[in-house]
Amino acid sequence: MVLTAELLQATLEHLVLTYTALIAGILVAIPLIFLSLYSAGLASIIMRFSNLFQAVPSFAVVAVVVPLIGIGFMPAVIAIMLRVLLPIIKNTYIGLFNVDPALIESSKGIGLTDFQILRNVRLPNAYPAIFAGIKFAAILANSIAVLTALIGGGGLGSMIFEGFTNFNTAKVLAGVLPVIGIALFLDFSFSKIERWLTPEYLRK
């Protein structure tokens, strides 16, 4: 059936978009995280602004990308990435710095350098938070990927909107259900991995 081939194509586009944006987000986040490690002051300023920016509706963010960058796949990726950066950075930062101060104190006491502390103490402690951040980002990316269909990103979103304008309920559903399915799948599988990665002593 034509619908099925179209559906498969759309789903594929959607997934490519979502994952590309997610990975791009993670890659961009890493240097920013290192930056925030070196300057706590700069970090808090960046966080404060980003928190404000997150309040802006996603639809507006997606729309504004058009005059500033253009339409098509790349702008779609960038739109999603902008949204997804903050949760990743924020969660990673909190995970790295919410370590029990007594632990840090004793690590310094036995002679670890700051970098070694980062690698051996903070990082293991941060895994669950980092993963929670990426999980949240993935679900968010999946959601915004639908919106980016409006700016030429293709994917399941375009199926939904086409179906909508043509009053084709079947097409709309065919677009929406996979999106929901992907979201639930992402939530479920990420939670499982998260639990697997959490060291025993941190499990509540």
């Binding site: 679900i139 959601s143 979103g157 939904i160 909508f164 929406v176 929901i180 639930l184």
Partner: peptide, 10 residues
């Protein structure tokens, strides 16, 4: 967890 767009459509 359901994207807000999807919920709206549903």
């Amino acid at each position: 967890t359901i994207p807000d767009v999807a919920l709206l459509v549903l």
